[in-house]
């Protein structure tokens, strides 16, 4: 960083405050386990013994008030859509949404004749990462979460946004 690099001992690190905050936030996103249908089983399998999610710092939380990331796993129906919005509003900022599976992305295999299926959860909540698949493999979900981590790292929470 120009003037301050290589001036101190080895165990002193100099960085921008933005980056430090980004690093802290991105490496421990606690996810809100919002499992609705089949993708919920793959989410559970990702959190279980073989593909462990906790080694990446992600802990499952059942209450929206304690979570950072909402993983919408499964089909959202019209009856459920209003509740999804309510749960999203209960989460505290900064919050992110991952749409897992093709049903949450765009209605999935039910897009044509499903009168009761919401064609994509981005109609009711803003989505950050889409993970395709039916259901996506645990490795695919982990890649989606790593992409979310990259996105969080690039955020600059301290910059004043120009109007």
């Amino acid at each position: 960083m120009g003037l301050l690099e290589n001036r101190f001992q080895d165990n002193v690190v100099v960085a921008k405050l933005d980056k430090l905050i980004g690093w802290a936030r991105s490496t421990s996103p606690w996810y809100f386990q919002f499992g609705l249908a089949c993708c919920a089983i793959e989410m559970m399998a990702t959190a279980a013994s073989r593909h462990d999610l906790e080694r990446l710092g992600m802990m499952p939380r059942s209450s929206p008030r304690q979570a950072d990331v909402m993983i919408v796993a499964g089909t959202v129906t019209m009856k459920m859509a209003l509740r999804v919005k309510k749960l999203y509003e209960q989460m505290a900022d900064p919050k992110y949404v991952i749409a897992m599976g093709s049903c949450a992305t765009s209605g999935g295999p039910y897009w044509q004749h499903g009168y009761h299926v919401l064609k994509g959860v981005d109609i009711v909540v803003p989505v950050d990462v889409y993970v395709p698949g039916c259901p996506p493999r645990p490795e695919a979900l982990i890649e989606g979460l790593l992409k979310l981590q990259e996105k969080i790292l690039e955020e600059r929470p301290l910059t004043r946004k120009m109007a």
Binding site: T75, T77, Q112, H113, Y115
Partner: peptide, 14 residues
Amino acid sequence: IGYLHRCFEKHCEN
């Protein structure tokens, strides 16, 4: 119930 009604029977007719 009904929060996961995905219209399976309607799909089968099409």
